[in-house]
């Protein structure tokens, strides 16, 4: 199953600033994050895939389109909602992509 588009959406929603100028390596960050997910212990990877798919579908529930197809502004809102979720795994998922995504993105920018 491919989750790249959902992860890319998370990278955009978490790291791309609204009206900002900073150019960030969205695609490279996404592919490294997908690799990170693939290196997780199998049960964590399975859990992460399930969460990502649910998150994508949560978008449909909220405004009729999957998360991956929403505007960056809407993506930010969906992420914000999950980061405040009463459910630990939802918050953990957002925290993982926020922290790891930031680390990956700034490691790539430093290399440049």
């Amino acid at each position: 199953m491919r989750v790249d588009f959902i992860v890319q959406g998370l990278v955009e929603g978490l790291l791309v600033s609204s009206g900002g100028e900073a150019v960030i390596p969205v695609e490279q960050t996404t592919s490294i994050l997908v690799r990170k997910v693939d290196h997780m212990p199998r049960f964590m990877r399975f859990g992460m895939y399930v969460l990502l798919v649910l998150f994508d579908l949560y978008g449909v529930l909220r405004n009729g389109r999957r998360f991956r197809s929403q505007s960056v502004e809407q993506k930010r809102k969906r992420i914000e909602e999950w980061s405040r979720s009463p459910l630990g795994p939802c918050r953990d998922m957002v925290e993982f992509f926020r922290k790891m995504g930031t680390f990956v993105c700034w490691s790539l920018l430093e290399e440049e």
Binding site: L15, G20, C105, S107
Partner: peptide, 21 residues
């Protein structure tokens, strides 16, 4: 405390983090 590690603990989108960094 290299910048990528700092970035992880600083909140915000790229422009915010860049400003803080």
């Amino acid at each position: 405390s290299a910048p990528p590690h700092l970035a992880m603990w600083l909140e915000g989108a790229a422009d915010d983090v860049r400003r803080k960094l």
